[in-house]
Amino acid sequence: ITGDVSAANKDAIRKQMDAAASKGDVETYRKLKAKLKGIR
């Protein structure tokens, strides 16, 4: 179950990262990237 949750989280975070990148929001992008590392 835990694996599914983190996989879903990663997917959601990647989508947020894409949105931040397209807006040029480097700050948010970095925060999300750090979150991704924390999940692993």
Rank of each mutant, 00 (worst) to 15 (best):
R14M: 08
D4I: 10
D11I: 11
R30E: 15
G24W: 03
K35L: 15
G24T: 01
M17R: 01
I13Y: 03
V26W: 15
K15I: 07
A7I: 12
R40W: 13
A7W: 07
N9D: 13
A34D: 11
D4P: 08
A7E: 09
A34T: 05
K35M: 15
A7Q: 11
I39A: 07
A8T: 09
I1P: 08
L32P: 00
A8W: 04
D11F: 00
G3E: 10
R14G: 02
G38T: 12
A34K: 08
A34R: 08
A20Q: 01
L32I: 03
D11Y: 00
D25C: 12
A20Y: 02
N9R: 13
S22R: 14
R30L: 15
K10S: 08
L32G: 03
T2G: 11
G38V: 06
Q16K: 06
K37D: 15
L36N: 01
V5S: 11
T2P: 07
A34L: 06
K23A: 12
M17H: 00
I1N: 11
K23G: 04
M17V: 01
M17W: 00
N9S: 12
D11W: 00
D18S: 07
N9Y: 15
L36A: 02
A8M: 12
L32E: 02
G24A: 03
Q16G: 05
T28G: 06
T28R: 09
A8K: 10
K31N: 02
R30Y: 07
T2Q: 10
K33R: 07
A21C: 15
T28D: 11
D18P: 00
R14N: 02
Y29T: 09
A20L: 02
K23I: 14
V26M: 15
R30A: 05
I1E: 09
T2R: 12
A34E: 12
K15D: 04
I39N: 06
Q16E: 08
I1Q: 10
I13E: 00
I1R: 08
K33V: 06
G24R: 03
E27T: 03
S22F: 04
A20M: 02
A7M: 12
M17E: 00
K15H: 07
A8F: 09
I13S: 01
R14Q: 08
R30K: 09
Q16A: 14
D25Q: 00
S22E: 09
R40G: 13
A7H: 10
G38D: 08
E27W: 00
V26R: 08
A20T: 02
K15Y: 04
G38S: 10
K31M: 04
K10D: 06
T28K: 06
K23R: 13
G3H: 09
A20I: 01
K33T: 02
M17G: 01
V26Q: 07
L32F: 01
T2K: 11
